[in-house]
Structure formats: C-alpha cells, structure tokens
Amino acid sequence: MFKAHIEIKLKKGVVDPEGKNIEKTLHLLGFDTVKSVHSQKVIVVELDAASKEDAAAKVGEMCKRLLTNPVTHDYTVVIS
C-alpha cells in the first residue's frame, strides 16, 4: 500500500482571501513579524498500486478529475 501526501495551493498571483484574513488577524494579535500567510490544503490518500509510479499516475488523475480545479490550483504529490 502507498500513501500519497497531496498539497493543493493557489496558483501564483491568484488572490488568497483566507491567507490575507489570517495575516490581518495575526497582526491584530500582535505577531508583528508575520510577513505573509498563504493558505493551502493537504489531502492524504492511501491506495493500492503496482508501483510508486503507478500510484503517482493514479493520484495525478484524482487531482485532475476531482481534487483540484486547474483554473486556480497547483498541486504537488509525495508518495511514500
């Protein structure tokens, strides 16, 4: 069995209202050294596959067909 650690983040240049909101609130709480905050999502998938490459290919397909919207998202996958 393989474990896929999928990180989904906004493409460069896409507005990140959640990150901005967190950044503003951290400043209000006195964390003056915070320079920027970016939000992202992590999804962990456990799956059976013939090989690590096969697992990566399957997870790539999952990202394309459900887990991300290519208009705004980039993703990285680490298989272990």
């Binding site: 507005v15 209202p17 208009v71 705004t72």
Partner: peptide, 13 residues
C-alpha cells in the same frame, strides 16, 4: 473534460 472556470472564494473571505 476539465472546468474552464471556477467560482472561487469571495474576496471578502
């Protein structure tokens, strides 16, 4: 086959 657009989070969050 893939979305051509997105209805993304409001700018106001």
């Amino acid at each position: 086959p893939l979305p051509e657009a997105i209805l993304d989070k409001n700018d106001s969050d």
